[in-house]
Simulated scan of single mutants.
Amino acid sequence: MAEAVFRHQVKQAGLVQKIAIDSAGTGDWHIGHPPHQGTRDILDKNLIDYKGMQARQVTSDDFVQFTYIIAMDESNVKNLAAFAPPPKDGEKRASIHKLLDFAPARTNKDVPDPYYTGNFQEVYEMVEESCARLLDFIIEKEHPTTD
């Protein structure tokens, strides 16, 4: 859900050519599968494209390829440590943040997994707000120019 929402917001901002977006899980349960039907339903309702999206697992290359890795909860943050390659001299590595860190008014900093809770609307609202603020953060920090 977060990948699709963020892609949509980046497209609206005219930054598709400047910001690479991908999502991956720390587990391997759903590799190759499309988003959950509940996620597809809420994305359809909000006219957000998810075509071609399928689950993959985090790799050590992600820590070098990307500038930011955004986790949904504290468990993800801890699990990401298992994928992080040993640091090399002078190598830039992705910084890890939790998505809800970009929603300062929210006291709970873990996105609940709607796969288990069934509350796709609530998660969508959290993701939409946090992704918008994440995009603002990236624009301020990285200064990408529009397409």
Rank of each mutant, 00 (worst) to 15 (best):
E3A: 04
A4N: 04
Q9P: 04
Q9S: 11
K11G: 08
K11V: 05
Q12I: 05
A13T: 03
A13E: 09
A13C: 07
G14V: 11
L15I: 09
V16S: 14
K18P: 01
K18Q: 14
I19T: 07
A20W: 08
A20D: 15
G25H: 00
G25E: 04
T26G: 08
G27I: 06
D28L: 07
W29T: 04
G32Q: 00
H33Y: 11
P34T: 12
Q37R: 11
Q37K: 13
G38E: 08
R40D: 01
R40A: 10
D41K: 13
D41N: 15
L43P: 01
L43Y: 06
L43T: 09
D44H: 01
L47R: 13
I48C: 02
D49M: 01
D49Q: 13
M53Q: 13
M53P: 01
A55N: 11
A55V: 01
R56M: 13
R56N: 05
R56H: 10
T59P: 03
D61L: 12
D61E: 07
F63N: 02
Q65F: 07
Y68M: 02
A71H: 03
M72F: 12
D73H: 09
S75T: 15
N76M: 07
N76Y: 04
N76K: 00
V77Y: 10
K78H: 07
N79W: 00
N79D: 15
A81R: 13
F83Y: 12
P87A: 02
P87N: 06
K88G: 05
K88V: 03
G90S: 01
E91N: 05
E91W: 06
A94G: 01
A94N: 05
I96V: 15
H97F: 15
D101M: 00
F102T: 03
F102V: 10
F102L: 03
F102G: 00
A103G: 04
P104C: 07
P104H: 09
A105S: 14
A105L: 13
T107S: 09
K109A: 05
V111W: 00
D113F: 07
P114K: 12
G118T: 04
N119F: 00
F120T: 02
F120Y: 15
F120E: 13
Q121N: 03
E122W: 03
Y124A: 00
Y124E: 00
M126W: 13
M126H: 12
V127A: 03
V127S: 01
V127K: 11
E128M: 08
L135Q: 10
D136V: 13
F137C: 08
I139H: 10
H143A: 15
P144F: 03
P144M: 04
T145C: 08
T145M: 13
